[in-house]
Amino acid sequence: MALRVKALESLMVEKGLVDPAALDAIVDHFEHKVGPRNGARVVAKAWSDPAFKARLLADATTAIAELGYAGGQGDHMLVVENTPTTHNLVVCTLCSCYPWPVLGLPPVWYKSAPYRSRAVIDPRGVIAGFGTVLPDEIEVRVWDSTAELRYLVLPERPAGTQGLDEDALAALVTRDGMIGTTRL
């Protein structure tokens, strides 16, 4: 596998189709600089700043860009909000479209065929598998990502966090909470 990648990469570099420095920058960026932390900051800001939250729900792409997270394949974003009566779950049934600029690289299970199919057929079962049993009165909405539109779940702000600042709030936000496989 490694040599197959090397073969392809060296040919593309030679033909001037890619810049090797840009490749290294991408690898470094996604390995070290991007992770669910960016998404956690978006959520923490939405919890603490009602005006930002309103902008985020109205036009997520632009609101997220305010925080400096843009580009890549997260260009068109829609933020879906959990409420006491609704829970949102994100999947990509076709392949593995994922909002990389805010969540980093997708976890292995997100890309697996069982998750991609079960999230649609049995979302409650999938969420239960992650440790959250949703009561019947909570409606589950499943959002199927595409190459053009990626979803981010805005979890509910946990109770008892009134005194916390954005940094402390961001530390409470998990990747799975923003995919919707868990409820914070």
Binding site: L23, I26, E31, R37, L105, P107, V108, W109
Partner: peptide, 26 residues
């Protein structure tokens, strides 16, 4: 204090990150 990734590292091997970057860059 960082959200933990229970699925382990996002790339299992370096070549995967290279392949990933190559697609993005092309």
């Amino acid at each position: 204090n960082l959200p933990r990734d229970e699925a382990g590292p996002v790339f299992a091997e370096p070549w995967q990150a290279q392949a990933f970057a190559l697609a993005l860059q092309l």
